[in-house]
């Protein structure tokens, strides 16, 4: 086990930021921590990293108790925080070299690692640039390079794609998967469910410091009643027809707004076919029809009654 958290409680005055939370991160996995802003993700990470005091619980990393002076553990951890933490007075190369030098003493080895990190994040053409001259996406890449240059066994990324353009976001996500393939265990926190779904092998959804659900994305989706959501655009319906739709098998929720119909079905077969047959029998014209499988947002919605981004 790379990380083990048992019954962790962290309070800020009367506010419980982390509420009796336990988790385990296994070697070699990409563990996703998903939750809305203010759910306690960063607080949990900071407790794991021994930056924050906590009220109750046990935390171990690589099988040893985590502490501020546990330098033998810290040397194998790389952290990328959501805010960029680099020195504006140092170039790209110097920034990576500085942070890498806090972990690796040997100059020759460090030089090789810094070159690898620059290559990994694709900053070869910007190595002599100062951070102020870099775009937001390049700056994020530099931030990542500073956190991973020393080749850590455990990499914790706390919302690394906030305020990043789609192209840079894809680069970052691909990089994380590559790091994992190279042997690093990854803990990835985000409030973007698509990212977590895309790269994480196991996911924990938290809200108000509590675990809402945990498992693989398939396991999480199987925990909820929603099986399929069907959308029908540009359709004219009256109350009688809406009632008829509600009578279809597995129908859970019917929503009709601005001539657009959304029907949520619980798990079952032929839901889409049943709906289309009904519309045809009533001789109703309609525009596009499509269906989608439940997302992690639906999981979050069903468990909390709120959208993930509320």
């Amino acid at each position: 086990m790379v990380i083990k958290v048992e019954n962790l409680v962290k309070r800020y005055g009367d506010l419980i930021a982390v509420d009796h939370l336990s988790l385990e991160v296994r070697k070699g996995e990409i563990f996703g921590l998903l939750g809305p802003n203010g759910s306690g993700k960063t607080t949990l990470i900071n407790c794991i990293l021994a930056l924050l005091k906590y009220d109750k619980g046990n935390i171990s990393v690589f099988g040893k108790p985590m502490a501020p002076d546990a330098y033998d553990i810290k040397k194998d951890i790389g952290v990328i925080m959501q805010n960029v933490a680099v020195f504006n007075e140092l170039t790209v190369y110097e920034n990576i070299d500085y942070f890498c030098g806090l972990y690796v003493r040997d100059k020759g080895e460090r030089k090789k690692l810094v070159e690898e990190a620059i290559d990994f994040v694709g900053l070869n053409d910007f190595r002599s640039f100062y951070p102020k001259k870099l775009s937001g996406g390049l700056l994020r890449r530099l931030n990542i390079a500073c956190g991973i240059a020393h080749k850590p066994k455990l990499i914790i990324l706390d919302e690394p794609t906030v305020a990043v353009d789609p192209q840079s976001r894809n680069n970052i996500l691909e990089g994380i998967v590559r790091l994992n393939r190279q042997g690093a265990t990854i803990v990835y926190t985000s409030h973007y469910m698509e990212e977590v779904e895309q790269i994480c092998s196991r996911i924990m959804i938290i809200d108000k410091g509590r675990i809402i659900a945990a498992g693989t994305k398939e396991e999480l989706k199987s925990m909820i009643k929603v099986g399929e959501i069907v959308f029908v655009e540009s359709v004219e319906l009256n109350q009688t027809l809406l009632d008829a739709i509600r009578q279809l098998p597995n129908t859970s929720l019917v929503d009709y707004k601005n001539h657009n119909l959304t029907v949520t079905f619980t798990k079952g077969r032929n839901n889409l076919m049943n709906l289309i047959d009904l519309l045809r029998k009533k001789n109703l014209g309609y525009g596009s029809v499509y269906s989608k499988l439940p997302t992690l947002n639906d999981v979050f919605l069903e468990f909390t009654g709120r959208q993930l981004r509320d």
Partner: peptide
């Protein structure tokens, strides 16, 4: 001090 009671500088997106 070894650990902090709170870390406002990195708590924004929590």
């Amino acid at each position: 001090r070894d650990r902090y009671a709170s870390i406002p500088s990195i708590q924004e997106g929590d």
